[in-house]
């Protein structure tokens, strides 16, 4: 088993004909992902890497019983593309684009919640379940099938953690990128619940960043979890008040959303926090 992206997933690619969309579609297919169609308005009837292209999500869902989507549309169009997918009944939505306006994300998030859809992102590397497939942009060569679940706010850092786990002989059940923006579709704690319930997953690594309170909220659930959880949080040396990238990584006030406040909450909940990525592996070893 894995979470969210499973053997039952039938995914479409929104923005399949674009420069990034078409390359990533090729790589997702090569990785073995069950992609069933692509969507680009105005390009219906074409084919991309053997996938039929439709003009809208509704037709792709109707003809292929698609239940998941990964988006590679330009940031200004992401809101409407996500809302269309929600309206068409899709329950797993992976919004890869970065630079999506925050107010657009607010609307996407509310609509996804109202319809019970999982919205990962925006600004997410996506989700990968090694051995099953990937919906997103992570390099497949950085992941191996196994028993560790990873939840991450940062794409690049999660690749690093996965690589370190591989070296130590720990593969992954699923890696879920929640997205690096200030507001994202899904709270970390919801993913944590899925990993707790997943029989393949034996332990979870949380890759966090400064800003917000997602890690603190996750800590509340960790207290009642049966599986071990280890954390790593980037941004100890980031100055307060400066937005580190387009990311949500910002310490708005002294003492809030800092590495210290997050580490304190996680540690108190029984999830030790590594000072650097390599320590994640050591902390996991002690608990497995």
């Amino acid at each position: 088993m894995s979470i969210l992206l499973t053997k039952e997933t039938r995914a479409i690619v929104q923005g399949v004909t674009g420069r990034i969309g078409s390359v990533q579609t090729k790589w997702m297919l090569e990785y073995g992902t069950n992609l069933v169609a692509g969507v680009t308005p105005g390009r219906g009837g074409e084919e991309v890497h053997g996938l039929p292209v439709y003009d809208d999500v509704y037709e792709a869902v109707e003809k292929h019983q698609a239940n998941a989507t990964v988006l590679f549309v330009p940031a200004p169009f992401t809101r409407d593309a996500v809302l269309e997918a929600i309206d068409a009944g899709i329950k797993l939505i992976v919004a890869v684009p970065e630079h999506v306006p925050v107010h657009d994300v607010l609307v996407m998030k509310k609509e996804a919640e109202k319809h019970g859809a999982w919205l990962l992102g925006p600004n997410t590397p996506g989700i990968i379940s090694p051995g099953i497939g990937k919906l997103g942009i992570m390099p497949g060569n950085m992941f191996v099938e196994g028993k560790i679940g990873i939840i991450s706010r940062s794409g690049t850092l999660s690749y690093e953690i996965a690589g370190l786990l591989n070296e130590a002989g720990y593969g992954q059940s699923s890696l879920v990128g929640v997205g690096g923006d200030p507001v994202v579709g899904t709270r970390m704690v919801k993913i944590l619940r899925e990993f707790e319930a997943d029989p393949q997953t034996e332990a979870v690594v949380i890759v966090g960043e400064i800003g917000g309170t997602a890690e603190e909220e996750a800590a509340e659930f960790i207290k009642v979890m049966s599986k071990p959880v280890v954390g790593y949080i980037a941004g100890r040396t980031a100055p307060p008040g400066r937005r580190m990238g387009h990311a949500g990584a910002i310490i708005s006030k002294e003492g809030q959303g800092t590495v210290e406040s997050k580490a304190k909450a996680l540690t108190a909940a029984g999830a030790p926090v590594a000072n650097k990525p390599t320590e994640v592996v050591e902390l996991l070893k002690e608990r497995l």
């Binding site: 690096g180 980037a234 980031a238 580190m244 990238g245 387009h246 990311a247 650097k276």
Partner: peptide, 26 residues
């Protein structure tokens, strides 16, 4: 990536070095 950038800054500090900047390409 932003996370990797911050992670790199944190590791510089571990060896007593300090970043002159943070630059993230996205």
């Amino acid at each position: 990536g932003a996370g990797l950038g911050m992670g790199t800054m944190d590791l510089l500090e571990e060896v007593g070095l300090a970043p002159a900047n943070f630059l993230e390409t996205g």
